[in-house]
């Protein structure tokens, strides 16, 4: 197998907390803590977690929008930091698309102007040539060409998200971070956008990081899954294996929380609950980040941080960070919850 397109090694991101009269640094928010995973070229990694899990910050760090406190990011074999120093800015290989396209589109510019601006800023096309390219971009994302004359407020949510995707495609990136891109859309429109993204991936060999809290969509689009909690990876591995037999109690809790559109199953299935609020990222506890919410936590979870490891007899690419994942009572509870979620 060739080298992965995107490679994160022990990536950490910290933000200072300033306090008092002199605004001195009183502490740090450990937004992302030693996160490592790879994305194979032309594939999609689904990055799952709740708000405050560090999933969005990880996505931003990947395209240079958040400073790395430690670790390395390699994009197509080249180190992100080295690239930055050499070029002053990041080369046009990665792009990001956000949840709310309305907030990221300038309300006073027409769709055509917005797209043309990107082309001109990056010196990809000018004048008539740029107009042609704008037309083709709109074709690519399934919008009528005459929408170029419209302003963002005249478009529906799904159309705006298509424009945001077109803007990302304008500079012909190889890698796109998709941060909750369908979460704000209606169910019927979500499907259209997911199809569009998958078509684009197949046609152009694009690599995606799909960040979301919505497990049903991530399941459909991802080749592999990374589950984050409190800034750390709890579990990662191939999609099938994660969804059919999660190793980590948190993954299991996430899966059992997703409502199943089947009344009989939904009412009877066993659930694994998350017992408390997410941990405070400015005062990380020793041990496992999930300890306070975990049904199975014991003394060791409070003192030592579990390492990501695979489980004997299972897919060696499927890793989880849990002290107790091998134990029979944990396995049984998790597999019962998983069965409810799968069917």
């Amino acid at each position: 197998m060739s080298a992965p397109a995107i490679q994160l090694k022990d990536v950490s991101v910290r933000f200072p907390i300033r306090k008092g009269i002199l605004r001195r640094v009183a502490g740090e928010v450990h937004a992302v803590d030693s996160v490592s995973f790879d994305i194979a070229e032309g594939e999609t990694v689904g990055l799952v977690g709740e708000s405050g899990s560090g999933k969005s910050t990880t996505g931003r760090a990947l395209i240079g929008l958040a400073p790395l406190a430690g670790g390395t990011v390699e994009c197509f074999g080249r180190d992100l930091r080295a690239l930055r120093q050499a070029h002053g800015a990041l080369p046009r290989m990665s792009q990001i698309v956000f949840q709310d396209p309305y907030a990221s589109l300038n309300p006073r510019m027409t769709i055509g102007e917005t797209l043309k601006e990107v082309l001109e800023v990056h010196e990809l096309a000018k004048g008539h040539d740029a107009d042609q390219r704008v037309g083709r971009l709109l074709d690519d994302v399934g919008l009528r060409r005459d929408l170029a004359e419209r302003y963002p407020h005249a478009l529906s949510g799904g159309q705006r998200q298509r424009v945001a995707i077109a803007r990302a495609l304008a500079i012909e990136p190889k890698f796109i971070v998709l941060d909750e891109v369908v979460s704000a859309l209606d169910v019927s429109i979500q499907g259209q956008i997911v199809n569009l993204l998958q078509d684009l991936q197949q046609d152009r060999g694009l690599t995606y990081l799909f960040i979301t809290h919505d497990l049903s969509i991530v399941r459909h689009v991802s080749h592999s899954i990374v589950v984050m909690y409190g800034g750390q990876i709890m579990e990662k591995g191939p999609r099938k294996s994660i969804f059919s037999a999660p190793l980590h109690p948190y993954t299991s809790a996430l899966l059992s929380a997703v409502p199943v559109p089947n009344p009989r199953i939904e009412r009877m299935r066993p659930r694994i609950d998350v017992r408390s609020e997410p941990p405070d990222p400015s005062a990380p506890l020793p041990g496992c980040r999930f300890q306070k919410s975990c049904l199975f936590a014991t003394e060791i979870c409070r003192t030592s941080r579990p390492q990501l490891r695979s489980m004997t007899g299972r897919d060696p690419d499927h890793l989880a960070a849990c002290h107790h994942m091998q134990e029979p009572h944990v396995r049984e509870a998790l597999s019962r919850a998983a069965q409810g979620a799968v069917s």
């Binding site: 979500q190 499907g191 997911v194």
Partner: peptide, 25 residues
């Protein structure tokens, strides 16, 4: 029916295309 199909298709294999409700709301 189409809404229910959309949801259940989301749980299918990665390579399969969705069959979303076409057009605009």
């Amino acid at each position: 029916k189409a809404l229910l199909d959309t949801i259940s298709q989301l749980e299918d294999e990665v390579s399969e295309r969705l069959n979303p409700i076409p057009g605009l709301p």
